[in-house]
Amino acid sequence: MAAKLPFMETNGDEPKYYAVMSDFNTPEDLLRAVRTARTAGYTQLEAFSPFPIHGIDEAMGEGRSPLGWIVILCALAGIALAILLQWWTGAIDYKLVIAGKPLFALEPSVPIIFELGVLVSAFGAVIGMLALNKLPQYWHPFFNYTAHAGASNDRFLLAISATDPKFKTDEVKALLDSLGGRNTELVES
């Protein structure tokens, strides 16, 4: 992406290059490339694809997302909030008997307990997902790659990061080329 705002320019202290990137024809080619690169000892990999590829997390040695636990905590918070709200407003702060119903009872409180639990969980899932992905992030060195647009269309990209301990530009380039990658290039950060 050409749009790079002035205040987002990197300063001179950071590594000059982001990664060597290459793009592949099919998800299977990408998976094979990831596996080969891992076997060759590279650890700082990132793959990009227009749709999630099954099995790529295992290939990259990624663990499961912790998002589930975040959401469960949110759900419990929502439930607690709903109970507190209904009990405090109805039975403590503003006592008014209506239709002979108790000031606070669980039976009529369940719907709102449920709804608030869901609402807070949904926010937890979305905000949690964005936070774990460090989004929104307007700019990323990934966009310096000339063929980056393929990742949202029909290409399957692999980046071997410049921070990888084994990183040597020529070797990485040769590896990606040998795996069938196209447009292999060193991407500035």
């Binding site: 990132e46 793959a47 990009f48 694809s49 227009p50 749709f51 999630p52 590829i53 790529i56 997390d57 990259m60 990624e62 499961r64 997302s65 998002l67 589930g68 959401v71 969980s121 949904a122 899932a125 979305v126 949690g128 997902m129 964005l130 774990l132 992905n133 989004l135 929104p136 992030q137 307007y138 700019w139 990323h140 990934f142 990742a151 949202s152």
Partner: peptide, 20 residues
């Protein structure tokens, strides 16, 4: 939001979608 479609992003994204 600056989505890149990286495998890590898809991982959290897919779980978020499943949870939703």
């Amino acid at each position: 939001f600056g989505w890149r479609g990286s495998a890590r992003q898809w991982k959290h994204y897919e779980l978020a979608y499943l949870i939703l």
